[in-house]
């Protein structure tokens, strides 16, 4: 893992969602996250990758292993050039789902992770950053 501390996966089809899940599972397991935390991180990644396939058409997941002093973390950034989220604040509110009832969306992902940052511009795209820190 030392040589490769970051990378990216293109997301276009539902097969790519599985690739994202496998990669994230591999990284999180290697870093030493608990079984439950691995499930949380992989599920969060799966939700965000699916949002890209469903709403943006295509995008990318950039993964980075964070090392800050004694802390180790996994950072995943999902970027797309899709339609964007009209009201990020509303989308982050619990119980909000975008129209066709797809997913519990972003609030669920936020709960599973330690940090989450959403940036979106209508017509330009969306960038979502999520981080989980390893507790020793």
């Amino acid at each position: 893992m030392k040589e490769q501390e970051k990378g990216s996966i293109q997301i276009e089809t539902s097969t790519d969602i599985v690739r994202v899940r496998r990669k994230v599972r591999e990284i999180a397991t290697t870093l030493g996250f608990s079984i439950t935390d691995v499930a949380r991180i992989v599920t969060a990644a799966s939700e965000l990758a699916r949002n890209i396939v469903q709403f943006a058409g295509s995008g990318v997941m950039q993964w980075t292993i964070l090392r800050r002093n004694e802390l180790i973390g996994i950072q995943l950034i999902f970027v797309d050039k899709g339609p964007g989220i009209p009201d990020v604040e509303l989308a982050m509110r619990e119980g909000y789902s975008s129209g066709n009832g797809l997913g519990m969306g972003l609030p669920g992902v936020k709960k599973l992770m330690d940090e989450m940052e959403v940036k979106s511009k209508i017509g330009k795209g969306t960038k979502i950053k999520i981080i989980k820190w390893l507790r020793k």
Partner: peptide, 14 residues
Amino acid sequence: MRPSVAITTAQLGL
């Protein structure tokens, strides 16, 4: 259902 999946599913709000 595995415990890890139950925890995650519930936290996701499903």
